[in-house]
């Protein structure tokens, strides 16, 4: 079979850049989407918890804060729950853990916490305004805020115990 050299060159010129482009895409983990908020001051908020307590991010300046957007209908949120529970106990005196309820109802949250325990206050976010300010795509998303109020890391998906330990040890 004779191969037309010109057709071969044109074909390769078209196909090779496309293959290279797609191959480069495979190198990226979709869970490692960089957030433009990392390295910037965390949007401050004043939210009420499930038990009526008011929490202000500004008032927590001076100690690291873990803000986790979660809901009871999200499977990875349930998966990461033990890791957050363990970390909140380990860093009870030095780190503040805050959960922000993402598109869920209070009864479901209360029932979940009764069954599985709570790693921190669950803050209500009416209208999802806090989730928008933090650029949340979907739960769970975890933001690590340094003592100076700057976001140092963001995790999309279930956060692991190892990641919590590494990041929080780095902040303390």
């Amino acid at each position: 079979m004779r191969i037309n050299a010109r057709v071969l060159i044109i074909g390769l010129a078209v196909v090779l850049p496309l293959v290279a482009f797609l191959a480069a895409g495979f190198r990226f983990d979709p869970h490692e989407m960089s957030s433009p908020l990392v390295g910037k001051p965390a949007p401050s908020f004043r939210l009420q918890s499930l038990d009526g307590e008011v929490w202000e991010l500004e008032a927590l300046r001076g100690k690291p804060v873990v803000v986790n957007f979660w809901s009871t209908w999200c499977a990875p949120c349930i998966q990461e729950h033990p890791a957050l529970l363990g970390a909140s106990r380990h860093y009870a005196d030095s780190v503040q853990f805050l959960g922000v309820v993402y598109q869920d109802d209070t009864a479901a949250i209360a029932s979940f916490q009764q069954r599985h325990g709570s790693w921190g206050p669950s803050l209500l976010d009416p209208g999802g305004k806090t989730a928008i300010a933090y650029g949340v795509y979907g739960p769970p998303e975890t933001f690590f805020i340094g003592p100076d109020g700057v976001i140092v890391d963001k995790v999309i998906g279930a956060v692991s115990g190892g990641h919590l330990k590494r990041t929080l040890d780095g902040l303390l």
């Binding site: 949007p43 401050s44 004043r46 009420q48 300010a133």
Partner: peptide, 10 residues
Amino acid sequence: APAEPTVERG
């Protein structure tokens, strides 16, 4: 009144 939730948008 119940605390009005606020978020700083900057």
